[in-house]
């Protein structure tokens, strides 16, 4: 056995530590790459007289719900159609579940459901016939077909409408049928173009609940909509598209482990507020203005309760302590204003 000097041992330990860190990093990158379900690079799409998408690039992780927003003509529908492989891109690449949409569109279709704004239903068929046709057209084996249909109709609440003609259904019920059809083959990704348009408030609430449930189950959703307040209920990310470009793609709420922006307001200004907050190791980015202060807080809700307690114990008259969330509407408006300037 070759004797190993202390220096060599130290170097070897050092190297193995570096290697281990590199390995961990690589593994994390691989895991992140695996979790990327949709990857779009420099996507360009031209209509005869207009460029609809101008070098769009983004990534979407599995299990997220992305709200796709933007003014009319921004390219939202075109983007969804390119993701679904329905339109041939002028240049750039789109991959879904690591499959190139241009190279193997049929493979992508098996993993993807698309709900277009006009729904695309056969009005002359009954709900039962529509679902049977869709299940057969998607190649669902006949032994599984009725079970899948039953699952979908129970979930969408249309089990009592099976014998109704599709043309006789309300917009809300047609919407539910269209979603049931799009989900029959259990896609990994569901793209929805303006799903809430024309729905009454109750139907919209039901839709939000359904989409939230699908997200919780791990389905990746991309929802284009004009109704930002509603998207806020269930989206994890927001993507703003304007003139065929992505101008913002961000999470709609801070992920677990990331600092949250809190705002505390006192009844009257106090010099003790800054001292008290600065003393807490979980507080950073402190910004005191009069009787109020804003800061980033890394603790959870229990730590937040503890912070509140310590502020009160310090003799400060706390009026409110709350998480400061920018609404999608405010982010959208800010971005749009920024673009116009």
């Amino acid at each position: 056995m070759v004797p190993v000097s202390a220096d060599q041992r130290r170097r070897r330990v050092g190297r193995s530590l570096v290697e281990r860190i590199a390995w961990h990093r690589a593994t994390r990158h691989q895991a992140e790459a695996r979790s990327l379900l949709i990857v779009v690079r420099n996507l360009i799409f031209d209509y005869p007289t207009k460029r609809a998408l101008c070098g769009v690039s983004f990534e979407i992780k599995a299990g997220t719900i992305t709200g796709l927003v933007g003014p009319n003509g921004a390219g939202k529908t075109t983007l969804l159609r390119c993701l679904a492989g329905l339109d041939v891109v002028s240049s750039g690449t789109v991959s879904v579940d690591r499959i190139d949409v241009t190279e193997a569109p049929r493979e992508v279709h098996r993993r993807l459901g698309l709900l277009q704004d006009d729904l695309g239903l056969y009005d002359a068929l009954s709900v039962r016939q529509s679902l049977n046709y869709q299940a057969a057209a998607y190649g669902i084996p006949s032994r599984d077909r009725q079970r899948r249909i039953q699952d979908s109709i129970n979930r969408l609440g249309i089990a009592d409408r099976l014998d109704d003609k599709v043309g006789a259904l309300s917009r809300g019920l047609r919407q539910r049928l269209a979603i049931a059809q799009a989900m029959l083959h259990r896609p990994k990704v569901l793209l929805l173009d303006e799903p809430a348009s024309g729905l009454d408030p109750e139907a919209r609430a039901n839709l939000s609940e359904l989409l939230r449930a699908l997200g919780t189950e791990g389905m990746t959703l991309m929802v284009s909509s004009h109704i930002l307040a509603e998207l806020e209920d269930y989206t994890t990310h927001m993507m703003i598209l304007r003139n065929g470009r992505v101008v913002e793609h961000c999470p709609t709420r801070a992920p677990v482990g990331r600092p949250r922006r809190l705002r505390v307001a006192l009844v009257q200004p106090s010099s003790g507020l800054r001292q008290c907050l600065a003393a807490d190791p979980q507080v950073s980015g402190l910004d005191v203005e009069g009787a109020a202060a804003r800061f980033d807080f890394t603790g959870d809700t229990f730590a937040q309760a503890q912070l509140l307690r310590s502020l009160i114990q310090s003799g400060l008259q706390v009026a409110t302590l709350q998480e400061e969330q920018k609404s999608m509407q405010s982010v959208y408006s800010e971005k749009m204003r920024g673009m116009k300037r």
């Binding site: 239903l121 056969y122 869709q134």
Partner: peptide, 13 residues
């Protein structure tokens, strides 16, 4: 015209 063509194109037919 009925906007069902894309659904057919995406099916396994």
């Amino acid at each position: 015209i009925g906007r069902t063509w894309d659904t057919q194109r995406m099916s396994a037919l």
